[in-house]
């Protein structure tokens, strides 16, 4: 039994030793501290004891408080996994937890340029080009762009004049001019992309207005504007002294030059028949109108005679009869049906 008891004793002693060691680094707090090891930061939410603070010397109180907090923070930091770098023990800090305000707003994604939009639509992908290319003239690898580039056409000392071009034209100047224009075009497109990204009005490439429009041009523009409504100008009111538009609306329609010969033949024959015929032609509309006018006049004369007796009632009957007759005959107010109009 003796050895077992000695083992227990040894274990108990080791435990006590351990506890004593821990005693030196242990701190008791009412509320646990909040740690942010990534920032080497601790927050002690416990309210410091005012009575102690006033009883003790101020500096001593603060120092003892700071020591306790520092010990707790150090304990926390020592728990972090460590690493050995160049013979120095280094603790790997976790990411900071405390949220602090940013210095600048979150970067916005760059709005796509017109080309980027198009490329996306068509599925065109950027291909990386090598930076160096082989220059056959200098027999070496040179940069593709920029200073001392391969195949630099600005360094040519002689240019072949193309057969088609004017022999007196300066080919060097032409190249420089072309380059300048390309640069300008690129710059313009860049600005257009900026404007597009900010939804600004772009100057259109359509027809520019002429400097001094003539009277007829203005009239035409006014007419077009009037007709440019959903109801094609149907409910558009006229200005007090506005004249009716000239030469608008009706268009002559021609028969097709080559088409149905039988109808054409019939038409010609009908025309010849009328011209050749002795019998007077009856224009139905004209006849009906004449008839109606006569009836109206008759009614009017009858009313004038019996105006005293019948009064308003008679007027109504007369008019009603006339109107009814007109409606039956195709009406004065109605539009002539197709084919019934004057020739």
């Amino acid at each position: 039994m003796a050895p077992s008891s000695s083992i227990e004793e040894v274990l108990a002693k080791a435990e006590r030793d351990e506890a004593e060691k821990l005693q030196s680094i242990r701190v008791e707090k009412e509320l646990e501290l909040e740690f942010d090891v990534g920032n080497l930061l601790a927050l002690d939410k416990n309210a410091p004891d005012l009575r102690d603070f006033r009883a003790q010397k101020k500096e001593d109180f603060l120092r003892s408080l700071a020591r306790d907090n520092a010990q707790l923070l150090i304990n926390e930091i020592w728990k972090v996994p460590t690493d050995r770098l160049d013979g120095v023990v280094v603790a790997k800090l976790p990411d900071p937890v405390t949220r602090l305000p940013r210095e600048k707003p979150v970067p916005k994604p760059k709005p796509p340029t017109k080309w980027e939009e198009f490329a996306k639509l068509k599925g065109i992908q950027k291909r990386k080009k090598t930076n160096l290319v082989w220059d056959d003239v200098h027999k070496e690898w040179r940069r593709r762009w920029g200073y001392k580039r391969a195949k630099d056409d600005t360094k040519d000392w002689v240019i072949e004049v193309p057969e088609t071009s004017d022999p007196n034209e300066d080919q060097f100047a032409k190249r420089i001019q072309a380059k300048k224009e390309r640069v300008a075009k690129n710059e313009l497109n860049r600005l257009r992309n900026i404007a597009r990204a900010h939804k600004l009005q772009l100057p259109g490439a359509g027809l520019a207005p002429t400097g001094q429009p003539s009277r007829s041009e203005l009239a035409k523009a006014e007419q077009v504007a009037k007709l440019s409504t959903a109801s094609v100008g149907r409910f558009q009111e006229r200005l007090p002294k506005e004249k009716a538009p000239k030469n608008t609306g009706k268009r002559r329609k021609f028969q097709p030059n080559i088409g149905d010969f039988s109808t054409e033949k019939q038409k010609q024959l009908d025309l010849l028949k009328i011209m050749d015929g002795k019998k007077p032609r009856l224009d139905v509309t004209k006849a009906v109108n004449k008839q109606m006018r006569e009836e109206d006049m008759e009614n009017a004369s009858r009313q004038r005679k019996g105006a005293g007796k019948k009064g308003r009632k008679g007027h109504f009957t007369g008019k009603g009869k006339g109107k009814g007759a007109g409606a039956a005959a195709g009406g004065k107010n109605r539009k002539p049906r197709k084919g019934l109009g004057k020739r």
């Binding site: 601790a42 927050l43 416990n46």
Partner: peptide, 9 residues
Amino acid sequence: KPLLVFAGD
């Protein structure tokens, strides 16, 4: 890099 400790409720 300093250790920062804030104490007080």
